[in-house]
Amino acid sequence: MIKSIKASKSEKILFIFLISLTIFIFTSFFLLKNKCLFVEKNNLDKLKLKISNNIAVMNLECGNVIIELYPDISPKAVERFKILIEKKMYDGSAFYKVSENTFVQAGDIEYGNIDNLDYSKIGSGKSGLGLLKSELSNDFIFAAGSVGFARTTEFDTEDSEFFITLKEIPIYQGEYTPLGKVIRGLDILTKIKTGNKAIYVLRPDHINTFRMLNSN
């Protein structure tokens, strides 16, 4: 006959400690490691956004970033941006240049797609649609969430690359062509992988899909 043995007090404490440790390890590896855990996903069905020709939805790992475009400020640039979105050319585009809490940059169509990254040439790729003239605005303030067309050190070299500011950057005023502004999902952009102060990000995060709202 097997007698049931009562656990001693110290055994109970050890048991509780082991359970706590297991929960802690589980939380650390599966929950806290999930960078998207506490981020609003911006589900389009719940948002009930007013349909507009100038609202774009960028889907990232952590959710949707909603961008309002400003064709009144930069008509040619916004027209180009919409063409690239409608042709789905930004799908898979890597955020290869990221400065923590400052800006994120993506949109190299030729060398910056996650399926075909070319680290030696990234940032110099072309869309095939030609270069645009800069449409600068001395009034547009690059506040947090501003979307601008990237360029080389020269003006009039805008093509497809764009950046989004994560904080106000006063020095960009009058320097870059404004495209629009993030109206929802700025916190999603702060979760994008950074290069830890390096110029480029190794194994970068990328855009899943980029669509105009009226095409969803």
Binding site: K97, S99, Y119, I171, E175, G195, A198, I199, L202
Partner: peptide
Amino acid sequence: FFILLFQILHVNADEIYNLIK
């Protein structure tokens, strides 16, 4: 090679660097 290269190119890649290098 790229990991080493990226470490060599380790600079403060902030918003002003982005503009005037």
